[in-house]
């Protein structure tokens, strides 16, 4: 159970009998922007100015947050498990790259729009077919679909560059700002702006009636059918949006670095993004932020300390994941919730 709803419940329970106005207030409560929600954006701006040497890493973190956020919409909110979300990330990546390398459209925002449309369309079609299954079957099918796309990209090497990938040079953003391969300044803000837009979009959705319906589906699908919810249609809609956002993340990922390789479609990436989300916490919006940041920072720093010749960081991530899953209710964000609840209890007594 997500703490989101339990905090609402706690607020309501103390209110006792509810009149209609307070009932509305409680439903609207989560949607209100809290001061602490500014924190990630303040950090993001701070990092840019204080640690210019880490902008490449920080840009990758921003993009992974967006990718994890897209996954959270289906895994955390609608309860749709997927081990193949890289299929949409990778589709967005290749659409953005191929537009420049094969179709001569170098403007990056155009590439992003095309990437979102194509990956959302792919999400719609596959969602319509796959979401009739559940649990392990669905997990296997999403995985199989992503692996299939990966093989397809490998097979059509003339187009995709196969194993070597494609190097391409996107033009200036909106014809104005050039990408900055050396200091990553425009690259960083490019990623930050899209993360912010993507975040606002997801945030609006999860607190909307549609978002509540997704939580209803996650909590009790049979009940949702019985109240007349078109469950499959709702899930396909969420899956389509999620795929579009993943495609957006994928497009930015390759545009800021000017190359694409088969890695963007890999099973490893599908797994990694799920691990990031679980580390951070599912169904909580900010789990994606914390999970992606912790994962990428751990990866980067263990590599710096222990060297890149051995995959030690995998070991570190493994240990952190095991500890998190065993000892927290819902990743790092669950730890945060527990800490807040503990402090409140201390204050009261």
């Amino acid at each position: 159970m997500s703490a989101d709803t339990s905090t609402t419940a706690a607020a309501a329970a103390t209110a006792g009998r509810l009149d209609r106005a307070s009932a509305r207030r409680i439903l609207l409560h989560d949607h209100r922007i809290r001061l602490i929600e500014l924190l990630p954006w303040v950090i993001a701006l701070g990092v840019f100015f204080l640690f210019p040497g880490y902008r490449l890493l920080a840009t990758q973190i921003l993009i992974m947050i967006l990718f994890a956020l897209s996954l959270d919409l289906i895994v955390g909110y609608a309860g749709i498990v997927s081990l193949g979300h890289a299929a949409f990330f990778g589709t967005g990546s290749y659409v953005a790259a191929l537009l420049v390398s094969s179709y001569g459209v170098p403007e990056p925002v155009t590439g992003v729009v095309a990437a979102v449309i194509v990956s959302a369309a792919l999400g719609f079609v596959t969602g319509w077919i796959l979401l009739r299954t559940h649990g392990l079957t669905l997990l296997m099918l999403t995985m199989a679909f992503a692996i299939m796309l990966h093989e397809l990209a490998n097979e059509f090497a003339e187009l995709t560059g196969g194993f070597d990938g494609i190097n391409f040079a996107p033009g200036p953003i909106l014809g104005i700002f050039d990408f900055d391969p050396l200091w990553y300044s425009s690259n960083y803000f490019y990623a930050l702006v899209f993360l912010f837009l993507g975040f606002l979009f997801v945030r609006a959705i999860i607190y909307s009636p549609f978002g509540r319906a997704l939580v209803g589906i996650r909590e009790n699908t049979r009940r949702m059918h019985a109240v007349g919810s078109p469950v499959l249609w709702r899930m396909v809609t969420a899956y389509t949006i999620s795929a579009g956002l993943a495609g957006l993340a994928g497009a930015i990922y390759v545009q800021v670095q000017g190359n694409v390789t088969l890695g963007v479609l890999s099973f490893e990436l599908s797994g990694e993004i799920l691990v990031m989300l679980i580390l951070g916490g599912t169904g909580r919006l900010y789990g994606a932020f914390i999970g992606a940041a912790v994962y990428k920072l751990l990866e980067s720093f263990t590599e710096q300390i222990l060297g890149t010749d051995q995959p030690y960081w995998m070991l570190v991530i493994g240990v952190v994941l095991i500890v998190t899953v065993l000892f927290t209710r819902n990743g790092f964000i669950g730890m945060y919730d527990d800490a807040i609840a503990w402090i409140r209890r201390r204050r009261r007594s």
């Binding site: 009636p209 319906a213 709702r234």
Partner: peptide, 16 residues
């Protein structure tokens, strides 16, 4: 919200 056909709305907070 399903009964009143409002459950598909995405850009209005629940409770509005």
């Amino acid at each position: 919200s399903e009964h009143l056909g409002r459950a598909g709305a995405m850009f209005r907070p629940a409770g509005a």
